[in-house]
Simulated scan of single mutants.
Amino acid sequence: MTKSEFIDRVAAQAGLERQQALGAVDAAIAVIESSLADGQAVTLTGFGKFHVAQRGARAGVNPRTGEAMVIDATRIPRFTAGSALKKAVRS
Rank of each mutant, 00 (worst) to 15 (best):
A11G: 06
A12V: 04
A12L: 09
Q13R: 15
A14D: 05
G15H: 11
G15S: 00
L16M: 14
L16Y: 11
L16N: 02
L16I: 05
R18Y: 01
R18L: 01
Q20C: 13
Q20A: 14
L22G: 05
L22E: 09
L22N: 01
G23K: 15
G23I: 01
A24N: 06
A24W: 00
A24R: 04
D26T: 09
D26S: 07
A28N: 08
A28K: 06
I29C: 12
V31A: 10
V31W: 04
V31R: 14
E33I: 02
S34G: 03
S35C: 13
S35M: 09
S35G: 08
S35L: 07
L36F: 06
A37W: 02
A37C: 07
A37V: 15
D38S: 05
G39Y: 01
A41T: 07
T43D: 05
T43G: 02
L44F: 09
L44T: 12
T45M: 10
G46D: 08
F47G: 11
G48T: 03
K49G: 02
K49V: 12
F50D: 08
F50H: 00
F50M: 07
F50K: 02
H51Y: 13
H51D: 05
H51G: 03
Q54A: 12
Q54W: 13
R55M: 04
R55A: 10
R55T: 14
R55N: 13
R55G: 06
R55S: 11
G56W: 15
A57D: 07
A57W: 15
R58K: 14
G60F: 00
G60N: 08
V61G: 03
V61E: 07
N62Q: 01
N62H: 03
P63Q: 02
R64F: 06
T65S: 14
T65G: 15
T65I: 08
T65D: 11
G66K: 10
E67H: 07
A68Q: 11
A68L: 13
M69V: 15
V70I: 13
I71E: 00
I71L: 05
D72T: 15
A73L: 04
A73S: 11
T74A: 14
T74I: 14
T74N: 10
P77T: 05
P77S: 08
R78P: 11
R78G: 07
R78F: 03
R78H: 11
F79M: 05
T80D: 02
T80H: 04
T80S: 09
A81R: 03
A81H: 00
G82E: 02
S83T: 12
S83H: 03
S83G: 08
S83R: 03
A84M: 14
A84P: 04
K86D: 06
K86S: 08
K86C: 09
K87P: 00
K87F: 12
K87V: 01
A88V: 00
A88Q: 08
A88F: 06
V89M: 10
V89I: 11
V89Q: 07
V89K: 01
V89H: 02
